[in-house]
Computed example of a mutant assay.
Amino acid sequence: MLDHRHLDHDGVRLHYVVAEPAPAPAPAPADADAPAGDGPGTVVLLHGFPHFWFTWHRLIPVLAAAGWRVIAPDLRGMGGSDAPADVEAYAPREVVDDVVAVCDAESADRVVLVGFDFGAGVAYDTCYLEPGRVRAVIGMENPFMSTAGSIPPLEGSAMIATKHFLHLHYFAQPGVAEADLAGHEREFLTRVFWALSADYHYLDVWQHPPGSTYLEALPEAPPLPWPWLSVEEMDTYEAEYTRTGFAGPLQWYRAMDVSWRARKEFERQTNPVPYYFLYSEHDPDLEGFHGRDPLSKLGRYHDDVRMVRAISSPAGHLMHLEATEDTHRELLASLEDIAAHVPG
């Protein structure tokens, strides 16, 4: 059962859900006097865009059934959390402090972070800025956050966008995307989910000319339900983004230069926290946004790489939705290793 909670942190109201671990089975008679224990620990699930806590709704009961306590926040700007208007409010320090505040409110000292998309960046930033609060980190799809080069990412995106459509530049322009997408929430969400999946090659959107809108660049999507997404799940996404609009979530893109500059402070450091990585072979982020052969570079960013695994089923960026059972199995394998070998 999910418990929806709120926390006021430095003027930002944060929403998150908590799932308590399933009761442990009764000990065998020979172990009747053995202590019950507190379970393997707490997992914090960090989502990306265009998501909110609900993207984990299939995973949360699986983790709870395995004995883990689960916390799934809405990152600031998305879902039920406040959306500050200043891009500086989305800097790594601010967002990491949100994670720490939620953990403090739940008396969770050393947690396992699972990060996907923007949430992976939050997880890695937490490892750099608050390593003592993180027991281990599991990255999904996005293996590291690079600050390579001397050109801020939005400046570089603007240069690329003179040659072809690029969503980073489109989203970075204040007021443009939210105006285009207002009233088209379901169409956008459906098209972008389909485009990011293994059913389409996402980088083909780059074939569209400069000045295209995202809806013009995205492919038509077949009617729902799909084998990996139900009508009811899309109804939930549509309702939430119709309620909130896109202005808050898009601050994460508009703050990319802010985050890039902040990360320059620790670009020569490596993440000291035990690191696990899970990916899908058709992920467009790995193909187009992390340089050549990103998996060979993990040691440049992470001190203690424990496990790197690909799911076996075909999946694009939305691996936890497209190949749910495989993703859950691999995540549980990582968590079992953490429970056995990483002190809590």
Rank of each mutant, 00 (worst) to 15 (best):
D235C: 10
V192S: 09
W206L: 12
R292I: 02
D117M: 07
A28C: 00
G291I: 08
V18W: 01
E287T: 15
K163M: 15
G149S: 05
V62E: 15
F116L: 09
H184R: 14
G115N: 01
T327Y: 00
R329I: 04
L154K: 01
P272L: 07
A262L: 02
R254F: 03
T244I: 11
V70M: 05
G183L: 11
L318E: 08
H57V: 02
D98V: 06
G41V: 12
L196I: 02
S150V: 14
E281K: 00
L298T: 04
V342G: 06
T42H: 08
A85Q: 14
E238S: 14
F266M: 07
P27L: 13
F266H: 14
L166M: 12
V87M: 01
R5N: 15
W228R: 00
E281T: 08
E185L: 11
L46M: 15
V62Q: 13
V111F: 10
E94L: 06
A239T: 13
G316A: 03
P223A: 15
D303R: 09
W194T: 10
L215K: 01
V134S: 06
L196Q: 12
D285K: 00
G80P: 10
G156P: 14
H169A: 07
G132L: 01
P225Q: 10
R93E: 15
R292S: 13
A65Q: 12
A19N: 15
M78A: 14
T55H: 01
L295H: 02
I338C: 01
L332K: 07
A123H: 08
L189H: 13
A120I: 11
W228V: 10
L332A: 07
S197M: 09
A310N: 11
P92T: 12
E265Y: 10
P152N: 06
T147C: 11
V112L: 12
R69K: 12
P61C: 04
A36Q: 08
W260L: 06
V205W: 11
R13S: 02
A72E: 02
F49Q: 03
E325L: 04
W228H: 01
Q173R: 10
L224H: 02
D31K: 00
G139H: 03
L298N: 03
P314H: 06
G211N: 05
V111P: 01
D104E: 15
V258S: 09
G291W: 11
Y276P: 05
L224N: 01
E88P: 03
